[in-house]
Simulated scan of single mutants.
Amino acid sequence: MSLPVLFGANVDPVWADPGQPLRVARQVEEAGLDLVTVQDHPYQSAFYDAWTLISYLVGATRKVTFVPTVANLPLRPPAMLAKSAASLDVLAPGRIQLGLGTGAFWDAIAAMGGPRREAKDAVTALDEAVEITRQMWSGERSVRFKGEHYSVSGVHPGPTPAPGLGIWLGAYGPRMLALTGRKADGWIPSYGFLGLDRLPDAVARIDAAARDTGRDPSSLRKVYNLNGMIGPVESAEPFQGNVLQWTDLIVGLVREVGMNGFVYWPDADHLRQLTLFALQVVPAVRAELAD
């Protein structure tokens, strides 16, 4: 089952100019893109709370889907996070996907009262969070789960979201990639952390884990966060050149690597860059893929 290729843009959750996130989100929607991503770093003083902002933006737009990239699990207990996502899915059907990760910036997390975890424990905690989230979305009358890091004991879950609400993991290491293939609905890595040279191997690991558990790898959403700049001329650097170079790169990533979603994070000049991406790069990619 092949998924349609989706396109989106990042909206920084900054509050220095209170209306900026909404202006950008509306521009993304009006330009016909599919996704808006929002960083979740609650300890960052320059940022709004991501879930509060996403809820506000959902109510102020009409059709674009929002994805936290990625929800900060150490500061958001999974049962509550699952309930938040399910609630938003019921209130605004099809407008949310749950991006989820292990956490990072452990000093800042600890300063805000969260746990400090070693890499192995962080992956185990995420695995448990996925299990709890699935149970909280199950529609069952009562659910229980006992893990090393998280537990629920006879909680009554609700509301029940639509089947389209998925879990997209920000995954890079071998254990995380395997977890994505086994249990997640999607994958949302970033170019800045996973370059073009390492991307095919990561996709292969996810696909192998999916096949090992009887899942169809092509049914998984694979979204690449692209940081860069669209310029007037060719560049030797990926995602720094002109529209034609961007188009060729993205088409290659779909056809040769298996990616099926792309979210643009401009390095600067955000509104103009997003316009170039939405009105020039995306139509060119769609036209190439339609051939």
Results as ranks from 00 to 15, higher is better:
residue 239 F to A: 07
residue 103 G to L: 06
residue 133 T to Y: 05
residue 208 A to P: 08
residue 237 E to F: 05
residue 124 T to G: 04
residue 63 K to I: 00
residue 281 V to F: 04
residue 223 V to I: 15
residue 101 G to R: 01
residue 209 A to F: 07
residue 87 S to P: 06
residue 287 A to G: 08
residue 203 V to Q: 03
residue 119 A to E: 13
residue 140 E to G: 09
residue 288 E to K: 13
residue 53 L to C: 14
residue 220 L to Y: 04
residue 231 G to N: 07
residue 223 V to Q: 00
residue 242 N to S: 15
residue 95 R to P: 03
residue 214 G to E: 01
residue 206 I to G: 09
residue 237 E to K: 14
residue 5 V to N: 03
residue 95 R to D: 03
residue 62 R to Y: 07
residue 129 A to G: 09
residue 40 D to G: 12
residue 137 W to H: 07
residue 210 A to Y: 01
residue 186 G to P: 05
residue 263 V to C: 02
residue 238 P to F: 07
residue 55 S to H: 13
residue 242 N to H: 10
residue 244 L to M: 13
residue 144 R to H: 12
residue 163 P to H: 14
residue 143 V to C: 11
residue 34 D to A: 12
residue 7 F to I: 02
residue 169 L to H: 04
residue 221 R to C: 02
residue 162 A to V: 07
residue 51 W to M: 12
residue 82 A to R: 02
residue 33 L to G: 00
residue 97 Q to I: 04
residue 125 A to P: 11
residue 155 V to T: 13
residue 233 V to T: 15
residue 209 A to Q: 03
residue 149 H to E: 13
residue 157 P to A: 15
residue 75 L to T: 00
residue 31 A to C: 06
residue 254 V to N: 04
residue 251 V to I: 08
residue 264 Y to F: 15
residue 129 A to K: 02
residue 197 D to A: 15
residue 88 L to Y: 10
residue 97 Q to F: 02
residue 236 A to H: 09
residue 5 V to P: 00
residue 251 V to Q: 04
residue 167 I to S: 08
residue 194 L to T: 14
residue 132 I to T: 00
residue 253 L to R: 03
residue 51 W to V: 10
residue 98 L to F: 07
residue 162 A to R: 10
residue 38 V to W: 00
residue 133 T to S: 15
residue 156 H to G: 10
residue 35 L to C: 07
residue 160 T to K: 13
residue 233 V to Q: 15
residue 36 V to Q: 05
residue 2 S to D: 12
residue 192 G to N: 14
residue 241 G to K: 01
residue 124 T to W: 03
residue 182 R to V: 01
residue 119 A to W: 09
residue 113 G to Y: 08
residue 208 A to G: 08
residue 272 R to V: 14
residue 142 S to D: 12
residue 98 L to E: 03
residue 151 S to K: 11
residue 259 M to Y: 01
residue 248 D to G: 08
residue 149 H to T: 08
residue 15 W to S: 13
residue 244 L to R: 15
residue 262 F to W: 02
residue 266 P to W: 03
residue 116 R to S: 15
residue 216 D to V: 13
residue 200 P to R: 04
residue 203 V to S: 06
residue 118 E to P: 05
residue 46 A to V: 11
residue 21 P to C: 07
residue 146 K to Y: 06
residue 86 A to R: 07
residue 44 Q to I: 14
residue 117 R to V: 02
residue 142 S to R: 15
residue 33 L to H: 00
residue 127 D to W: 06
